[in-house]
């Protein structure tokens, strides 16, 4: 509990969870008072904004199975687990702790120069 210099509790401080609850509630109420067509539009825009973070990747089913098992084990979403894996991976590369060159094999393809062989 934050206290001001005079010992009184600082009423401007708010629990972050409560703050999020209030702002989500305000948004919901503001949307509800919009005319129907505008409400649809804001909902569509929000969905579109959420979609911008969505990516389509072609991933080996064996990897997906392991990922989904691990996500279930830790009781987290697959998206969050994947994000964590990518952050750890990108950090490791940036720090020079990980070198991916040994995993690359040259191929004859008009678009890519290499293919990855992760079973190495």
């Amino acid at each position: 509990m934050k206290r001001k210099d005079n010992g009184l509790i600082d009423l401007t401080a708010i629990d972050p969870v409560v703050e999020a609850t209030l702002s989500q509630g305000r948004r919901r109420i503001a949307e509800r008072s919009l005319p129907k067509d505008e409400r649809k539009k804001t909902i569509r825009e929000r969905e579109k904004a959420a979609k911008r973070n969505r990516v389509m990747l072609d991933i080996d089913p064996a990897i997906m199975r392991d990922l989904s098992k691990l996500a279930e084990h830790y009781e987290i979403s697959q998206s969050q687990l994947t994000s964590l894996a990518l952050v750890l991976f990108l950090n490791a590369i940036e720090k020079g702790e990980l070198d991916i060159l040994p995993y690359l094999k040259p191929i004859n393809n008009p678009r890519y120069s290499y293919v990855v062989n992760w079973n190495k």
Binding site: M1, I9, D10, L11, A13, I14, D15, V17, V18, T21
Partner: peptide, 12 residues
Amino acid sequence: LVSTFGELVYPV
């Protein structure tokens, strides 16, 4: 509640 009791208000 929040404007009266500030940080004393716990998550709902």
